[in-house]
Design a protein around this nucleic acid. Structure first.
Length: 284
DNA sequence: AGGGCAACCTGGGGGC
DNA sequence: TGCCCCCAGGTTGCCC
């Protein structure tokens, strides 16, 4: 479940389900999602045995499950990754890749934490000493939900870039958590065309885009995220409803809710972009 | 530093 | 029913 709101939905679901729970055993059903663990799938499973999960954390689209000994299980959902919390023995979904058998809940039965991933662009790895901030995440900028996120600093950095503003929004080393959907939604809200060079935008517009990105992701989180299909669900398999609120992304041909002009779809960075040609005019 | 693009995967949908 | 091509909320790495 790619972008920040969807990843945060997962983190919030994991928190009550795994915090404080010991790992009784790990089963790796497909080696690809643990490819970053150099010692191999069996070693990945073995090294986690007997350790205990702390409170799940997130930066941008990266998620990590701290272990109480200071290490962490780092996770990225890629394009199709999910975490599911299930009762032991519940039927496995088709693309289940890794299963954690959890124990230790004095108030209830054991639980299985399952990593499911159709396309396997994401994965899990052990991050030594990564409980606070995995080294693999150090190059990722703070996201707009981070208490230490500083809009002034980020806006100044954006204003120095000559790249198209959408490209900058998608650059996870500038500001993290924004993907193709929320970039388009933020640009629509701020009335800015994604192809506009960042350094050509008035300062007020840069702040408007940043604030719109934070706001639209907060709105989406409030709706449980964006779910077009069963690939993007919470740890219980439930869909979010923000797709009903999208104003630009995927709305090709539909009238802009502000001005009635049909939303257009354009190719950008080898993917699709959507904008209102009237509210978000492209610069010449 | 910036930008283009293929690669990593699986599966759904549309056209013929 | 089958096939082929295009599409998909991401990231990395290589090339110019």
């Amino acid at each position: 479940m790619p972008e920040l709101p969807e990843v945060e939905v997962v983190r919030r679901g994991l928190e009550p389900a795994i915090t404080g729970r010991p790992i009784a055993s790990v089963r790796v059903l497909h080696p690809r999602p643990v490819r970053r663990h150099e010692a191999g799938p069996d070693a990945f499973a073995a090294t986690l045995n007997g350790r205990t999960f702390g409170v799940p954390r997130r930066r941008g689209k990266y998620l990590w499950l701290p272990l109480t000994d200071g290490d962490a299980v780092l996770a990225h959902l890629g394009m199709s990754g999910q975490f599911r919390v299930d009762a032991p023995g519940a039927p496995l979904l088709r693309h289940t890749r890794v299963v954690f058998d959890l124990g230790g809940d004095p108030a209830g039965p054991t639980t299985e934490l399952r990593f499911v991933d159709q396309r396997m662009f994401g994965g899990l790895s052990l991050s030594p000493g990564g409980a606070d901030l995995p080294a693999e995440v150090a190059h990722i900028a703070r996201d707009p939900f981070d208490a230490a996120f500083d809009p002034e600093v980020v806006a100044a950095r954006i204003s120095r870039k000559r790249s198209a503003i959408k490209r900058v929004l998608l650059d996870q080393t500038v500001v993290s958590g924004i993907g193709n959907i929320y970039a388009d939604e933020a640009l629509w809200r701020a009335r800015v065309a994604g192809t506009t060079p960042a350094d050509a935008l008035p300062t007020a517009s840069v702040f408007a885009v940043l604030d719109a990105a934070r706001a639209v992701m907060a709105d989406a989180l409030g709706q449980g995220g964006t779910s077009f299909d069963a690939l993007y669900v919470n740890v219980n398999g439930e869909s979010g409803y923000f797709d009903r609120t999208l104003e630009a992304y995927g709305q090709e041909g539909r009238p802009c809710s502000r001005c009635g002009t049909p939303i257009v779809r354009e190719a950008f960075m080898n993917r699709s972009s959507f904008r209102c040609p009237a509210c978000q005019p492209a610069t010449a």
